[in-house]
Amino acid sequence: MDQEEKEINNGVIEAIRSGKAKMRPKWHFVLQASLVATVGLLVFFVAVYMASFAVFELDETGLWFVPAFGAAGWTEFFGSLPWVMIFLCAVAILLVIIIMRRYSFGYHWPILYSLLAVIIIASGGSALVTRTPLYDALFHLRKDGSRIPVLGNWYGAFAVPEIDRVYRGEVLTVATSGFILKDFRGHTSSIVVATDTSLPNGAYFAPGDTVVILGDRIATDTIRSEGVVRLVAAEPAAPEAPPASSASSAPAVFPASSGQ
């Protein structure tokens, strides 16, 4: 052993004997590992929770479906996405990956694989969350205009902004120039379907259909549609006598008028 080696070794042993270098107890590492794992899991759940909110909002407002209307739909889609929530979700996912890379199962794979795995698990997790009774309860509170406990203010700040041109709801009655829509907040509007209205999956609508409309509100309770897409068709009803009025609960094929 040369002089240099001896100096290093003696320096280290001296630091140990003098108490300058102390061996940390096992519990220190157990605690540290548990804290890191807990933080990683918490951040992951935050990502799942935010993703589930974003998915729910996109679903409830009908924003998911507007790209079916072509370029105008895509513009509306990207302009109305909850970007703050998406950004926070991306930051949370990035944090999860950084934490994962402390462990061999994280650094043994390229970051792209870890990223895909986290996104797939977070998406699956958020899809599961949207099916839990707690989630339904929270969103019923939101629909009723109540504040969600604890998350009320936070949610208001980051949720999908009020979308002016996209409406999702159920067809109440059909008329010659369109139909009456009840949106998910319970408001009713008269929808005008014109000859230039884009109807990607057909012009056949019936009461009870769930539809998404892209269009402009031309009066307090009237929307001129640029596009209408049917998401869920109504259950076929038992035949009954047609009503005398122009508004009907029977199916109708559009456009029946040129609109406004």
């Binding site: 240099e4 100096e7 290093i8 070794n9 320096g11 280290v12 630091a15 140990i16 270098a21 102390k22 061996m23 940390r24 107890p25 096992k26 220190h28 590492f29």
Partner: peptide, 18 residues
């Protein structure tokens, strides 16, 4: 390198229980 090596061994000792 000498200083760093000493630091490596001190860290190894400190964290040996991990």
């Amino acid at each position: 390198s000498k200083d760093l090596l000493q630091e490596v061994f001190i860290k190894a000792y400190t964290n040996l229980k991990s």
